[in-house]
Design a protein around this nucleic acid. Structure first.
Lengths: 154, 154
DNA sequence: ACCGATGAGTTGATATATCAACCAGCTCGT
DNA sequence: ACGAGCTGGTTGATATATCAACTCATCGGT
């Protein structure tokens, strides 16, 4: 009576995947929040910035890298600015940068091992080595398809 | 320099999974919204309600079934009430129910095939039959672990 | 030089999710 | 009977995500 077009096997796969992803995301979020006062979005931005040796990135680049809408990024950054995790810097020529502040770097370094352990416990440990690779392959397959299918923009 | 504790293989699996899940969820949401004016949350609730022959469910039950916090469910339902998709009904004895309205059932029936097709296109089609089963197994493994690990509440 | 298009960035409105506090009624042990 | 604690439900505050509209440069062509 719903989701016709998927047979039982497919429907089951989809539903368990979706449920799993939902719960997992929630747990990760809570853990980061409780232990480090960071949202997952915060953490993601921090990690991305730390990729750069100077902890600096242009807004567009960052947005493209994260696959985020510009406005989402903007709001996120203003929140992070308010908390002193990053700082905006306007270059001479019509370009905006974000820089990791020392506090931001600190927060990241404190959170990282804890987060990693949590991710491991929740998603790596319950899987066999094979399954880990399968998950990676499945994910990239779906991702590739998503990127092909429509929306090259962003 | 981040997420120590995961080796490259694991990190790669985690990141592609996470990215995939993020993009996928966004697409599904957009599609449902654009084509049927429903959020994924709306849709989920509608499907859950339609499980019952009378399209009725007790709040607690529904919450438990969806794995949602009571307050999340509450807010969601008031939004859906406002749009006429469901109706609240208070039983005599301190128990709250939600009922699918005809409009709600309608919306669901209109959305379902379209949604199913979209899910299929985005997540089933790019995978082999084997991978579909693998995904189901992986998901249930992680889910089982999540449910074991802490939080029996909700 | 000008106009239109595009791209980066900003803003505000709205929808959604999460959290903590609260308000009944119920139940249970004393 | 009474108070402590539990459960189901509600509320409001806040954080986050999404969307549309807007500004302001820059660029290309004429």
């Amino acid at each position: 009576m719903e989701e016709r077009g998927l047979d039982d096997r497919e429907l089951h796969a989809w539903r368990s995947f979706f449920r799993m992803q939902e719960v997992l995301r929630g747990r990760i979020e809570q853990q980061l929040q409780a232990a480090n006062g960071l949202s997952n979005a915060d953490y993601t931005v921090l990690v991305a910035l730390a990729d750069d040796p100077a902890g600096r990135a242009r807004l567009v680049e960052l947005g493209r890298f994260l696959g985020w809408e510009k406005s989402r990024l903007h709001h996120q950054l203003t929140r992070m600015c308010k908390r002193g995790l990053v700082r905006r810097e306007s270059a001479a020529t019509r370009a905006m940068f974000v820089v990791l502040t020392p506090e931001g770097r600190d927060a990241l370094e404190k959170a990282a091992p804890c987060h990693a352990a949590h991710v491991r416990r929740l998603t790596i440990d319950p899987l066999t080595d094979e399954q880990i690779d399968q998950l990676a392959e499945i994910s990239t397959a779906i991702l590739a398809n998503l990127e092909a299918d429509q929306q090259p923009s962003r």
